[in-house]
Design a protein around this nucleic acid. Structure first.
Length: 322
DNA sequence: AAATGTGGCAACCGCCTGCTA
DNA sequence: TTAGCAGGCGGTTGCCACATT
């Protein structure tokens, strides 16, 4: 025979927990520790199913739970882990101390997922629905082969190369696909992974930097982000991407710093900024964005939508990559 | 001020896995 | 060996607070 049922479902309370019930559960677990959920409700004087008690404790009452808004670092971690693990919320939560799988799941469904959808990114596969990631025709041309991927190091952050490598090692599906296609589409798959993760990396980097700057500005007495003065020439309509010193995806140049002035010289001495897809205000050393201050969420979306406008610059000579 | 719409989140539901008798 | 349960997990629901009309 198996075990006896964990609880008699008749007469058990359901729905939101009251403070009194929470207190009973906390007190009992403080004395006896978590576990033995079957007998816990009866011993603690609760008219609840043991399963309900366990959920309440693990998702809400546990003392090590970290509540409040998710940080950019946490969001970055969630997105990256989700791209590898999928909806394995418990596995993702295990890598985010203080966060529960339920909380991460809710945050994904209510925030990240919707934003990715608005940006044209499939939240399940993390692949773009836009055509720019479908570089098959370009990559299968006679102008590019596997060795050219090495040249992409100029375009791709080394950390992303490492991430792509770890993804390839950890993602069985990718491994199989690459093995199946190593003589034909392998480089294309790798490039897709690189580009997708470059997107994620730049997105999170921008979020972090923008948030840090936002916090720094907020700490200045009598100075709110709205009244930070903008300097020099306007780059309105030229929110990027840019070609800078022969490189695209220059990290510091990807900031969609709406309402903040930004000096290109901060990022690189003697920099030149060339909008890839716009003819206005070329070679500006300083620029500003004069759009109204938007929420962080809007900034994220704004950045990503701009990023999705990525075009391969004509100045990029693929023949050289050979 | 009231009605309606929307988003966030706590909690439940049901399936799966591993353990136990 | 196997029936049956506890615990774990992901999906879904429904309530509540806030925003909008």
């Amino acid at each position: 025979m198996g075990r006896t049922p964990c609880c008699d479902k008749n007469g058990l309370k359901k729905g939101p927990w009251t403070p009194e019930e929470d207190q009973k559960l906390i007190q009992y677990i403080q004395i006896h520790g978590p576990g033995n959920w079957r007998n816990l409700p009866k011993n603690a004087g609760l008219q609840r199913c043991g399963k309900s008690c366990r959920l309440r404790w693990t998702n809400y009452l546990r003392p090590d739970i970290r509540r409040g808004r998710f940080s950019f670092e946490e969001e970055e971690t969630i997105i990256q882990l989700h791209s590898v693990l999928g909806n394995k919320w418990s596995a993702i939560a295990a890598r985010l101390p203080g966060r529960t799988d339920n909380e991460i799941k809710n945050y994904w469904n209510t925030n990240i997922r919707k934003r990715l959808l608005r940006m044209g990114i499939d939240p399940v596969t993390h692949s773009s629905s836009l055509d720019f990631l479908d570089l098959s025709s370009l990559l299968s041309s006679t102008h590019l082969n596997l060795s050219s991927l090495l040249g992409l190091q100029a375009l791709v952050n080394p950390e992303i190369l490492k991430l792509a490598n770890s993804l390839l090692l950890s993602n069985t599906e990718n491994q199989e696909l690459l093995l199946q296609n190593q003589n034909s589409q392998g480089p294309e798959l790798l490039l897709q992974i690189l580009l997708q993760n470059q997107l994620l990396h730049n997105q999170s980097t921008i979020f972090q930097q923008n948030n840090q700057l936002h916090n720094q500005v907020s700490e200045i007495p009598n100075c709110t982000p709205q009244n930070v003065s903008c300097s020099s020439q306007s780059m309105e309509g030229n929110a990027g991407p840019y070609l800078m010193n022969g490189q695209i995806f220059q990290e510091n140049m990807m900031l969609p710093l709406q309402n903040y002035s930004y000096s290109a010289s901060d990022a690189s001495e003697n920099s030149t900024i060339q909008p890839l897809n716009n003819n206005n205000n070329q070679n500006s050393q300083n620029f500003s964005f004069e759009t109204p201050l938007s929420s962080i969420e809007e900034e994220k979306e704004s950045y990503c939508s701009n990023f999705m406008k990525f075009e391969i610059p004509e100045s990029l000579d693929f023949d050289d990559l050979l």
